[in-house]
């Protein structure tokens, strides 16, 4: 039987005028879920699920070899269909983001590959992909300068800001922004925006996402602790 919550006028008004909160949907992950890879992670943010695997430092093709640092390769596979330019752009962003995080100079002339498989896209897909990729790199124990956390936020028609939006919210939003922060100085690593917004809205979203990113970093720490402390 369904249950109802009755809100008074006063409570409704308070709800509408409440400041935006730095909330994330429920995060669950499974590290080392696949056995043949150097590192693997399956991450769910709410219902959006992404599986990422990492290899490296491994052999690199001569054409892509760099003499001073590792070559970072990212492949993004959508759930259905062949990769299209939209997916190439995602790969480009994820690769550039991970390249600044990975300590490439420690492994010149080698390749660090990350393969990301979209399992379910129900909002904030790009953010979930970047977070899963970071977890996969942590699982593979690749040397990193810092960890990266991505958080998406949506600006609705009435000006309300929602962090880590679901797909239904994203579709109705006026603008969607994905921010990626690093864990040392909390500076901005990447940003991707869709839709129109004012400078003020940009700043509010950015600060809210930065706050939310701290929860993601805490989640990484917790996940790795669970994995490492089970070894004796």
């Amino acid at each position: 039987m369904a249950s109802f919550i009755v809100l008074t006028e006063e409570q409704q008004r308070l709800q509408r005028e409440a400041p935006p909160e730095a909330v994330l949907r429920c995060l669950t992950s499974e590290l080392g879920c696949l056995t043949r890879q150097d590192g693997s992670a399956s991450l769910s943010q709410g219902d959006t699920t992404v599986t990422a695997v990492a290899y490296g430092p491994a052999e690199v093709r001569m054409a892509r070899e760099r003499i001073d640092r590792a070559t970072v390769e990212v492949v993004y596979k959508p759930k259905v269909g062949l990769p299209r330019p939209v997916d190439r752009k995602k790969e480009n962003i994820i690769r550039n983001t991970l390249e600044s995080a990975i300590m490439g100079s420690a492994h010149p002339r080698s390749a660090i590959s990350v393969i990301i498989q979209e399992t379910e896209d129900l909002g904030s897909n790009l953010a979930c992909c970047i977070n899963a990729a970071c977890l996969a790199l942590l699982d593979a124990a690749v040397g990193l300068n810092f960890m990266v956390a991505a958080v998406a936020s949506a600006v609705m028609e009435d000006g309300k800001i929602v962090t880590d939006p679901e797909k239904k919210v994203e579709e109705k939003a006026v603008a969607v922004m994905t921010f990626v922060f690093e864990s040392v100085d909390h500076k901005l690593v990447s940003v991707l925006t869709y839709g129109k917004f004012t400078q003020e809205q940009y700043k509010v979203c950015r600060d809210l996402c930065r706050q939310t990113a701290q929860s993601v970093f805490a989640f990484y720490r917790e996940s790795l602790e669970k994995k490492l402390l089970k070894t004796v």
Binding site: N92, I93, I94, R95, N96, T97, L98, E99, S100, M177, V180, F181, E182, D185, K187, L188, V189, S190, V191, L192, T193, Y194, Y202
Partner: peptide
């Protein structure tokens, strides 16, 4: 739009 695909943190 603001577009920063990775690279040095700012």
């Amino acid at each position: 739009s603001v577009y920063k695909p990775g690279g040095s943190p700012l």
